[in-house]
Amino acid sequence: MVDDGDPPKQLTALDTEVWNDVDDAPSTDALFRALANRHRRRVLWYLVDDSETTIAELADALVGWEASDNVIVGPEARRRVYVSLHHHHLPMLSQADLLTYDADSGAVRLTTSSKPVEDVIRFSHRYEHALARRDER
């Protein structure tokens, strides 16, 4: 089993201390809208591990995922991913108060430090990973 850093144990545990940690968390609808897209789940998961990055690196990572199933991903496909991050996904995640995106410098920074938010991001990534493995079997 690959170590996932800090895997969620009991997301719904009635641990008052953890559930008070929602001061900078987005609204429920905004959070789950953010998580309703594969690219955005991957962006958030990447940022949970490394909270400061750039749009270029996020584009590399998303394309790298697609490359696993292909021999090669060319410049055009990467450009499309970059553009969809710039015009769509990053502004949406920024609106949801999950991250900041500086379109001039390309800097992307996770802004929420809420433990429940981090847990649900890790959970959704792990869930997707498990389903992908199921489908490979």
Partner: peptide, 23 residues
């Protein structure tokens, strides 16, 4: 991060700021 994509490489022309050639 772990549980991510299989190891991959991004190749660019003209150093880091250049155009992506492929992934």
């Amino acid at each position: 991060p772990p549980l991510g994509p299989e190891p991959f490489a991004v190749i660019r022309d003209d150093g880091d700021d250049g155009e992506v050639r492929g992934v």
